[in-house]
């Protein structure tokens, strides 16, 4: 592949600037993937990548994804916390890429807590 230059980037920028708006509105939903050594060893990266993949396919502007450290519940990793405005945070345990996709569609997008995978309410 030819090396992309700064000029190429500028052209892409000009082309796309009109087409899309910034994802900047206030985030109402926060999805945290816990990325301590324990989480990473248990598969948190694959969970995060599935989540990024789903994020790329939605045009919702109010969802923010963050990586954080270990919560101290290493044996239930990978853990994912979903926080929705006005509701208690839900911690999910033993997550996989597929479970993440389900939680994203059902809980994050539609507000239905997936109790089968939930570890706790915080």
């Amino acid at each position: 592949m030819a090396k992309l230059t700064v000029d190429d980037l500028k052209r892409i920028k000009e082309k796309t600037a009109k087409e899309t708006s910034l994802r900047e509105g206030a985030a109402k939903i926060k999805v945290t993937v816990h990325m301590g050594t324990c989480g990473i060893a248990a598969g948190a990266r694959e969970v995060m990548n599935a989540l990024m993949d789903e994020m790329a396919q939605t045009d919702r502007q109010d969802i923010r994804v963050v990586a954080s450290g270990c919560m101290g519940m290493c044996s239930s990793e990978p853990n994912v916390t979903v926080e929705m405005e006005g509701e208690e945070p839900i911690v999910y345990q033993h997550m996989t890429a597929n479970k993440m996709r389900q939680v994203f569609h059902r809980h994050v997008l539609e507000g239905e807590v997936q109790t089968d995978f939930a570890l706790a309410k915080m």
Partner: peptide
Amino acid sequence: SFGGRPVTDPQVFQ
């Protein structure tokens, strides 16, 4: 290069 847009911007991510 993307005029200060964040990496979470769909185009930058892409």
